[in-house]
Structure formats: C-alpha cells, structure tokens
C-alpha cells in the first residue's frame, strides 16, 4: 500500500515538473521518499500524498473515478485532522468566456464540496470560491495545459507546513 502511494506521488511530481515553465508558486512540492519523513497531518503531506486537486473534462463538473479516489483521500485526511479548514477553489481553462467560466468554476468547486460533505466532512469547515479562467496554473495554449487548469483545488488552512 505504501509502495503504491509512492508510485502515485512520483508520477505527480514528474507531471508537475514537466509543465512548470516559470511557475514559482507551485502548491505541490516534489516528494522525495528518501527525504526525512513528513508528518501525515502536514500541509505538504496533504498536497502531495493525499492530492490537493481534482481535474475535470471540458465544460464538465462531473467527478470521475480518479477524482473520486482523490476526494475520498481528502475526506479521510480532513476527518483525521479536525482542526483544519479548507477552501475549495474552482477553476476553468481559457477556452470559454469569463462569466460562464466563473459559473463553471463554481460548479466544479461545489462538486468537490458536495463529495467531501457526503464523506462526513463538516460543511462548516469548508468554503468554495470560483476563479473562473482567471488563475491558470499552466500557461500554454493547448490541451496539455487546459487539462491541468480545469480543476478544483482544496486549499487547507491550519495545518503545519511539513
């Protein structure tokens, strides 16, 4: 089980490295299994091992099976760390108009929110905000970037950094 988790983490790190042109404020840090251990209740653990984000298909806010696994881990982690609150940010790619994308981002954030609440996370610990297409993480103009930008990111507050 631990081995499988490492496999997932390494893949995430590679994907992020490949697309991080000049982005300095990556929320996910590459995880080195040989480095000194990080606390399971830390921000770093949540962002890298649990996974802080889920991705969506074009114009969709449906939670697919992969996203569902990530959100299940998020719910477990949030339930194990009751002192932490979270803001779920909904985002869209640049292939849409501003206002529609704000609404679409709200749909995506809400889909993740509803999933977490359905898995026992108290609604009072969660809020949602949509950024539409205004805060892309990957800046190229093709599907390799757009697919990363169609996302709902769970930003936790109140957890130690590492």
């Amino acid at each position: 089980m631990t081995f499988l988790k490492f496999g997932f983490v390494a893949l995430t790190a590679l994907t992020l490295a490949a697309c991080s042109d000049s982005d300095e404020d990556m929320t996910a840090q590459p995880y080195d299994p040989n480095a000194s251990t990080i606390s399971e209740s830390s921000l770093q653990y949540f962002n890298t091992v649990v996974g802080d984000r889920v991705l969506f298909a074009t114009d969709s806010s449906s939670i697919d099976s992969y996203a569902s696994e990530t959100l299940t881990r998020q719910a477990e982690w949030l339930n194990a760390n009751p002192g932490v609150s979270a803001t779920i940010e909904g985002h869209a790619d640049e292939r849409g108009t501003r206002e529609y994308n704000l609404a679409l981002g709200a749909r995506r954030a809400n889909a993740a929110y509803n999933f977490l609440v359905s898995r026992g996370v108290s609604a009072s610990r969660l809020r949602t905000v949509s950024y539409g297409k205004e805060r892309p993480e990957a800046t190229c103009s093709n599907e390799s970037c757009w697919s990363q930008n169609r996302r709902a990111v769970t930003v936790v507050a109140g957890a130690p950094m590492s």
Binding site: L102, R107, A109, N110
Partner: peptide, 25 residues
C-alpha cells in the same frame, strides 16, 4: 453567494446580475 455579471437597467434604477449558490447560477 457569488454575485457576478452585473449590468444596469436602461433607466439606471436597477441592476440585473447572476447569483451562484450551491454551484447553481
């Protein structure tokens, strides 16, 4: 809720806009 896409009525006395609650707009 999130409020956005505001515009005035032609006589300036009223606003029309979108409100998003629970993901629905």
């Amino acid at each position: 809720g999130m409020t956005f896409a505001p515009r005035f009525s032609p006589d300036g006395s009223s606003v029309v806009m979108s409100l998003s609650r629970g993901g629905n707009t």
